[in-house]
Structures are given as C-alpha cells and as structure tokens.
C-alpha cells in the first residue's frame, strides 16, 4: 500500500497526489512514469510523475479524469492509500546542453513536461516553454513552469486566458521569428504531439515526444504498448516513452489506443451509475447511518 500524503485538485478533473514511495522517489528522473492499481479488481494504468522528493521519500503524480480508473483515483483524498505503485518506469529524458530547448506541454502533459524542462534548464539550456490548455481553468503548473523557463508562452483553445490558439501557433511564431531552436520536447495529447512533429519536421528541428499507449506490466513483458517507430515495433515502456517525433507513426498509436473503447465506455457508465446511486443512497442514509465509504464499485 502506498499512502497519499496530500491530494489536491490543480484544475477541474486534474489532481495532484503526493505519495509515499521512498524507493521510487530515490530513483525518479525526468521523463519517467509509474504504473498504479487502486484496488484488487482494478486495472494497471501508467501515470505521469511530476516531481519527487528523495529526502522525504515522496513522489508527485498528476492525474486527469478520463475513464473509470482515473475518475476513481481522483476521488481519493489525503490519508487514503493506493494499492500498487511501481516505477520509475521507462527511460529517462536525455538531458544535455542542446542550446535552446522548447518544451511544449499540452493539458495534463504539462506535468510530465515540467521535470524535463527543469532538468534542461539545470543543464544550461535556454528553455522556452509553451503550455496549452482548453481553457483558463485547465492551465496547470504555470508558476512551476515559469520558474524553470527563460520564457513561458501560454495558449488556451477558447482564449479565456493568455493567447487564444494552440501550442503549435506559438511554436510556429518562434520559428518564423527566427528563434534558433535546437530541441523541441512535446508532451500531451497525441494530436498535439503529431502537429508539433509535423511542424518541426519541415524545419529539421530534433523533436522528442512522450508516448502514452495502453500498458499492463510496464517492464517489456507483455508487448501491449508497442508503437511503430520508423516502421519498426518498439515497446514504449522499455524503449521509450520518449521517441523521435519525426519517426513515430501517430495513426497507429491512435488506432491502438482505441482498441478497448467499448469496454472503457461500459466501465465508465457503470461507474457513473454506481456513483449516482451511491450519492442518492447517502442522501437517504445521511440522517441515520451516514455515508458509506469504499463501495463505489
């Protein structure tokens, strides 16, 4: 069991957990992730590590509600526990002094981009960060990103905060303004990483993306997370998760991530139905016995 020391929403549906995991905290490097399982019947899902504190023996993870497991995870509070947390998994980001690095974080991907931006900064790079979100509420880690960046550019899809548009608009502007860019790191939704890679391919700028295929064990054993890189199968959990964005077959990634869409939908609907039933029941019971915990399933 891994204890949640602190849980806090960063934005609607996006929650940060500080988890007691001394072994992982000691070893975590930017670009790596954990796999977790919440309860006995639960699935294993890969989750971003935002940060870690080796002294305190804690790691920070950031989770966006999407399906049943992430929704359930985001109901957990300070003091609760997570059944299994394993990691740090994947190869760390390749950190060096490249010159000028542009770090692009899309939505919750910003949490994974943050430690890489910080490490690139420490390695002596000039770091320009671009953070994109759907709207103002969903912009996360602005303060943290600003601290580790020479410049921080923010976009929102609806223009409710900073500049209206997409991260690629900002990247294009940088390129058009003649900014010398030696490396682009993009972490976020697949469409965003694909758009960034297409943009930089034309300019021949080395681009690293962090892929998020479906995984089970995370140690290379199952091969479920295989991605097509330059026409060759590679395993995101051991060969990645970071790959050269110009070599990634994003269509196959999208297609494989949709493999269990029907089952995921079914799980989510069942989860929502039970949540609703429980909410109604707890209203009824509140007067006498109080709300029951731990029966979301």
């Amino acid at each position: 069991m891994f204890k949640i020391i602190h849980a806090q929403f960063l934005a609607p549906g996006i929650k940060r957990f500080v988890i007691e995991a001394p072994r992982i905290a000691r070893k975590q490097k930017p670009g790596q992730f954990v796999i977790l399982r919440i309860y006995e019947e639960g699935e294993r899902i890969p989750v971003t590590i935002e940060n870690s504190d080796p002294e305190k023996g804690t790691i920070n993870i950031v989770v966006q509600s999407a399906g049943k497991t992430t929704n359930l995870l985001n109901t957990l509070e300070t003091g609760d526990s997570i059944l299994d947390v394993v990691g740090p998994l994947g190869k760390p980001s390749e950190i060096a002094n490249y010159g000028t690095a542009v770090v692009v974080g899309g939505g919750v991907g910003t949490a994974m981009a943050y430690p890489t931006a910080a490490a690139l900064k420490r390695a002596g790079n000039r770091v320009i960060s671009i953070v994109g979100a759907r709207n103002k509420e969903l912009v996360i880690l602005e303060k943290e990103m600003r601290e580790v960046s020479d410049a921080l550019l923010i976009t929102t899809d609806d223009g409710s905060y900073a500049d209206k548009g997409f991260v690629t608009d900002k990247l294009r502007q940088l390129i058009e303004n003649g900014t010398r860019i030696d490396l682009v790191v993009a972490v976020g939704p697949i469409v965003m990483m694909k758009a960034v890679s297409e943009l930089t391919r034309k300019e021949n700028i080395h681009t690293v993306v962090s892929l998020n295929p479906i995984m089970i064990d995370g140690t290379g054993m199952c091969g479920g997370c295989r991605v097509l890189i330059d026409g060759k199968s590679e395993f995101a959990c051991v060969d990645g998760p970071e790959f050269d964005g110009h070599k990634v077959n994003f269509e196959v990634l999208v297609q494989r991530n949709a493999m269990y869409r029907d089952a995921e939908k079914q799980s989510m609907e069942e989860f929502q139905r039970l949540q609703k039933a429980e909410a109604e029941e707890s209203e009824v019971c509140a007067a006498t016995t109080g709300a029951r915990q731990g029966e979301q399933r």
């Binding site: 019947e41 699935e43 294993r44 049943k68 269990y260 089952a263 079914q266 799980s267 069942e270």
Partner: peptide, 15 residues
Amino acid sequence: LMKAYKFPVYDEPML
C-alpha cells in the same frame, strides 16, 4: 493476472 475474463467485475478489458 488481470482477470480480464471476469470483466466488468475486474476492470482490465480484453476484446
């Protein structure tokens, strides 16, 4: 391991 044959009692799906 994941008991996908007991889906949806277990969360891990399979085709």
